[in-house]
């Protein structure tokens, strides 16, 4: 139980996917301009991460023990097709949900956070529940970073940021300072 809590806290704060592992940087730098969009993208990513955790646990347990060399390619194929399938299902079952989250799904499947989660979970030998909690923490951490970033970008959008700085350089430096602030979480709940 302690383990699960730590896995969650670690993925959420201490080893935040974006700020410590650099996973999911494309959307983090690209789509974090608007708060609303960022939040939705975060939710959608969390959703896909959870599917990924389930898929990769299944593959690891039943397929890859026999053919470890197929790891990478099977992760990609299985995750992409599962997400595609779910996307179609959502579209049919709940057009409203599809409108708010579904449109991001194709974007997310090519995101390195997804593949990263599968690979990390495999390397660490996580079981089903551990993988699930890991995905939940990583997704929540991604959403948190996205939302904080979007808030700051919206705020600085109306400030007089020097023209030379504006753009990716600026976003990277904001992310750097945010990452520095997240260092404060290091060692959280590991020392007690």
């Amino acid at each position: 139980m302690d383990d699960l809590i730590w896995i969650f806290i670690s993925a959420l704060l201490v080893n935040n996917f974006v700020l410590a592992y650099f996973l999911g940087l494309c959307p983090f730098l690209g789509v974090s301009g608007k708060l609303e969009t960022s939040f939705r993208l975060g939710l959608a990513t969390t959703f896909v991460l959870i599917i990924t955790a389930i898929c990769s646990w299944f593959l690891n347990t039943y397929v890859l023990t026999h053919a470890p060399y197929l790891r990478l390619i099977s992760f990609i194929v299985v995750i992409a097709s599962t997400v595609q399938f779910i996307e179609m299902a959502i579209k049919k079952l709940s057009p409203a949900l599809f409108q708010s989250l579904g449109i991001f799904l194709p974007l997310i499947t090519t995101n390195c956070a997804i593949l990263g989660l599968a690979i990390f979970a495999t390397n660490r030998g996580y079981g089903f529940w551990e993988g699930l909690i890991f995905a939940l923490g990583a997704g929540a951490g991604f959403t948190l970073a996205m939302v904080l970033m979007a808030g700051m970008r919206e705020e600085t959008g109306i400030n007089e940021v020097p023209a030379l700085v504006r753009g990716t350089a600026f976003n990277l430096i904001i992310a750097g300072i945010l990452s520095m602030a997240f260092m404060g979480f290091a060692g959280l709940f590991s020392s007690t």
Binding site: L148, G151, E154, E155, L178, A181, F182
Partner: peptide, 9 residues
């Protein structure tokens, strides 16, 4: 610093 980051929100 962390709350600074949350201030815009």
């Amino acid at each position: 610093l962390l709350m600074n980051a949350a201030t815009p929100l």
